[in-house]
Write a protein that binds this DNA or RNA. Sequence first.
DNA 1: CGAGTTTTTGAGACCAATCAAGTCTCGTGG
DNA 2: CCACGAGACTTGATTGGTCTCAAAAACTCG
Lengths: 251, 251
Amino acid sequence: MSVVLPSSARRVPCEQCPLRTMAQFRAFEPAELKFVSSFKTGELQAETGATLLSEGAHSAHLYTVLSGWAFRYKLLPDGRRQILNYMLPGDLVGLQGSVIGEMQHSVEALSPLVLCVFQRDRLDTLFRNHPGLGFDITWLAAREERMLDDHLLSLGRRTAIERAAYLLAFLHQRAASVGLSATSRLHIPISQLHVADTLGLSIVHTNKTLRKLAERQYIRWLDRACEVLDVEGLMAVAGWEGLPDIKRPLI
Amino acid sequence: MSVVLPSSARRVPCEQCPLRTMAQFRAFEPAELKFVSSFKTGELQAETGATLLSEGAHSAHLYTVLSGWAFRYKLLPDGRRQILNYMLPGDLVGLQGSVIGEMQHSVEALSPLVLCVFQRDRLDTLFRNHPGLGFDITWLAAREERMLDDHLLSLGRRTAIERAAYLLAFLHQRAASVGLSATSRLHIPISQLHVADTLGLSIVHTNKTLRKLAERQYIRWLDRACEVLDVEGLMAVAGWEGLPDIKRPLI
DNA sequence: CGAGTTTTTGAGACCAATCAAGTCTCGTGG
DNA sequence: CCACGAGACTTGATTGGTCTCAAAAACTCG
């Protein structure tokens, strides 16, 4: 298993953050931006497959994804794995650990990853001096809760093909919302094993299910990646409305 | 479908809140307590089966459960229902709606319910003037996220009997932690249909699964209620460690 | 008492898991 | 340059867990 690289020198100043200019994100007060800039202590790079945070660890850090994909998961004692959600640029990583204490899930990089590193012990200063940012963190926690609600609905009440369609439409939409489709054709960097462990299905059945979606021309499966050809089609199969298009905060 | 009763006169002053004396909850600064007291505008009583909040509604309120049980759920377009989580005394209700805007799930009372009603539009004042309380709300959101993570693991990777054992152990522990077992024998006020819609199983298979747990003397099923006889046994079946025993905030 | 839930049980169908190979690609080392 | 092993994806056969259909029994409430 590959390891996280040591924290490298700071590269991107918050004032010139490439994410902050995107329409998707809420504008900041100058004072807030200045604080966030001081809140950030550096950047961390991780390669594909690196474990960023481990279940049970206490020394959790707080990060925001600057670029790349990651996912978080839990294991059962006998090794069965459940992927809980995915992280894309602009998403907070490690909030549960920072707020409550112990991490109860692990986080792994799905692609080369760059993270902004924050000083967890200054979180109280953030809440004290910048209530707007405190509210933003709550907002992001509520957003995560919503995504989990959707996943729960999917695992509990959707059939295999509906679940698969939902997941791929969901990931496609999230990626598109942070501009990942603008540059080139959007490829979701997951293997079928990731899909299986997200949907609660076996790898074999996942393969047969994805195959059906591919036959209908909704997706195309590449090696360790998925290309969505018809989001509308996927959403129709899943009976999913899509994510609400709301401006969101970026810490 | 029964309806929520009109907001009644205030009964319990926050300074004499029966929950606040429990060891489970974190102590408050006097100033915080005073603010919360002014933040609370009254109480709301709901009868069993009443819908407190509806998916899609914008005029969501913010509540804390004072006594009783509730649950939140989502529906698929064709009516399939997934129960997402349960609410017990001390739990916030309607945070997603208050923070983000639109509710994307509904909330229904499982038993006669008393709620503290808060002024949603003073939430920003709370964050501005009482950063500790702002942090507490984030803490509670992170806690909910954790519970959802556990449920997701359950739906995705546990077998039917493991899921059932996990759910009942989980609910038993939560109820015990807010003192519901102290008075009398603890009865979880849910029907097998609720269990089915929580576990993502059919009602028929749920019945057969619960029957197995009852045969092993882990639970006893009463009419529309479950009595847990052996939590340890349930936890062993589920391979579940139990909830961490941490002091938590009470808004 | 009668109507409507809730719980129970059985039978058959179907969806998804497991078992078992087999192909491809890629990277490594002889 | 080729042999080899590890991952990732495919495919078919078989098994088994869960669903649906159907109906009845138990219980609640008005």
